[in-house]
Design a protein around this nucleic acid. Structure first.
Lengths: 336, 336
DNA sequence: CTGAAAGCGCTTACAG
DNA sequence: CTGAAAGCGCTTACAG
């Protein structure tokens, strides 16, 4: 199979071939301007003939730069193998942006304490120039620990702990208000909610928006808590139906749980939206294909991931602000 | 924000503090056995007090090992932002396995020629000890080019080009046969197919299994081609219905397209499975939540990703075989 | 078992 | 603009 890995040519070899010093080769390779065109030409063709590619370990040993960014995904073990479509979108978008900026992305899972320790050591080992956190739960000590090491950090979504980090978030409270407001405006009287995990700010904020809006309308809340998976949404819906068979609307804190709720409603013989109106949150692609198509709140995932990368890559002094909250938008389809 | 990044302690510092040579510190840190317990103890506490973490660039400069593996995702530009649940699952599973083996995973998107060149340079630059390819299309020259550099390579799924690479695949032909066989056994007479992209072996093989089975039953094929997205499945279903309004079953080459087909069927007023039976492929989580729940062929994603990692990490001489094809399983639910 | 020393492949002041 | 030289932080034969 694998051909013997032949030794790669070094800077030295290129210098010898081009009959210049190693310093000059280094300058040419790194695009320094001040090099005589003739030498540059000689170096370039030597590089070409030899197939020279700089050894990155040697380079980063002296420059103390790695051109790598860690993308840390801290999912709880139970969700590690779920197929959250947001994961895919955030990871791809961030990778795209990072690659465009010439950075490598190192993906790290940090769902267990051991994995977290691993991330900390890795970052402490100087492997990366910055760290991006996605889906942080509860009192995660990692971001703070890393920020304290002097390594730039940013978070996708507001961190659950009150640590002073830059982050890109979307307006979860406002989005939930739009959703519930829409339900109320449609004449629904008994609006339940399937909340997300309460150790994540997205879960907290979306629930807060729901409570706000109901309170302002002088209505009572009816809540079941899920964990953002379809199964938990289906189960929460069962509880809700048992708790109040008369409910005529439900706000699910994400689309996946809304899909689970739709499933339960169907099994229970409730028509959507006639008997029960349903609104989700995120506007994942699947929302257009449910029966009926799901009314939901659009979560600007791509923009948010892009902003996150920019926050990390832009030197702190150039920021007008270090926390960005993107607006959401209600997308009305047929489920409410 | 970021505290000034304080200089990290070096091996040298640890040696000084523990009053031993640098060589000894190196041995202890790398877990070499032959070290006097007393010195080892001294080194360990010096490491602890100083918070020493080895500089990986320096280490890899001499060992020529990076402990990193590249995970290359070659999606065509159009699918880059789709929310393919398999992407998430494969990436997470592979990361998990790789991390358990002490490897870092560098995620690289290779959807464009430029991005591919970037991957090639990166690997040529000695950044990684191995490369895993996911979702390879058509005549992708990258895997061959990298294998020729002497870097270990493995592919998730059989490569589309006849290059001699190790890979982990699932039995796509057999799975399609099970699906179509089930439809035929259920008494369906006019079985259409929504095929996947024909520049991917999964697309080719699943179509081949469909054709096989129909031919053996002396039935005519009716095919529309999609690209594994829900939208393409919906559109293909429209074509199929126009081409033969009398069809009574459809085999979709993946669940996402099956979901699209279900959507179109619903809009067209066809009942599933009464009027038209539908079978998908993959058994993604969403398959349990469609209306009706989707009968499909289980694609052992987790096992396949795990095998892929093992193939890459195990020295070639220890392999009994370098190509593994995992069995599929028909999961009967309500759509067929 | 331990240490002195060479060397991995680069970059970067410093002279010229 | 160019080159000689030092140095980045490790590991690893080689002696002892």
């Amino acid at each position: 199979m694998a051909a013997p890995r032949r030794p790669r040519p070094t800077l030295e070899a290129v210098a010898a071939r081009a009959r210049v010093s190693r310093a000059t080769v280094s300058r040419v390779v790194n695009g320094r301007t001040s090099v005589d065109p003739r030498m540059r030409e000689a170096v370039l063709s030597a590089v070409d003939e030899l197939g020279y590619v700089p050894n990155s370990a040697a380079r980063s040993l002296v420059t103390r730069q790695t051109d790598s960014i860690a993308l840390v995904v801290s999912e709880p073990p139970t969700r590690v193998f779920s197929d959250d479509p947001l994961f895919s979108l955030v990871v791809r978008t961030a990778s795209n942006e990072l690659e465009a900026a010439g950075k490598q992305v190192v993906l790290m899972l940090a769902g267990s304490p051991r994995a977290q320790a691993r991330v900390e050591d890795y970052v402490a080992g100087g492997h990366v120039d910055g760290v991006m956190f996605v889906s942080m739960h509860g009192a995660d000590p990692l971001p703070g620990a890393i920020a304290r090491m002097g390594v730039p950090v940013v978070s996708y979504g507001r961190p659950a702990v009150a640590v002073d980090l830059p982050y890109a978030d979307n307006d979860n409270v406002g989005g939930a208000r739009q959703a519930v407001g829409h339900l109320l405006a449609g004449g629904r009287r008994r609006v339940a909610a399937i909340a997300g995990p309460q150790d994540m700010t997205a879960g907290q904020d979306r629930l807060a928006g729901y409570r706000d809006t109901l309170a302002a309308a002088d209505r009572r809340a009816l809540v079941a808590v899920g964990d953002f998976t379809r199964d938990s949404g289906a189960e929460a819906m069962r509880h809700l139906l048992a708790d109040d068979p008369g409910l005529d609307a439900v706000f699910a804190a994400n689309d996946l749980m809304a899909i689970g709720a739709l499933h339960t409603l169907r099994r229970a013989g409730r028509r959507v939206p006639d008997d029960v109106a349903v609104v989700g949150f995120d506007d994942i692609e699947a929302a257009r294909f449910t029966d009926p198509p799901l009314t939901t709140v659009r979560h600007p995932v791509v923009e948010q991931a892009t902003v996150m990368v920019r926050l990390l890559l832009t030197p702190a002094e150039q920021h007008d602000r270090t926390r960005v909250v993107l607006p959401t938008e209600l997308v009305v389809r047929e489920s409410a």
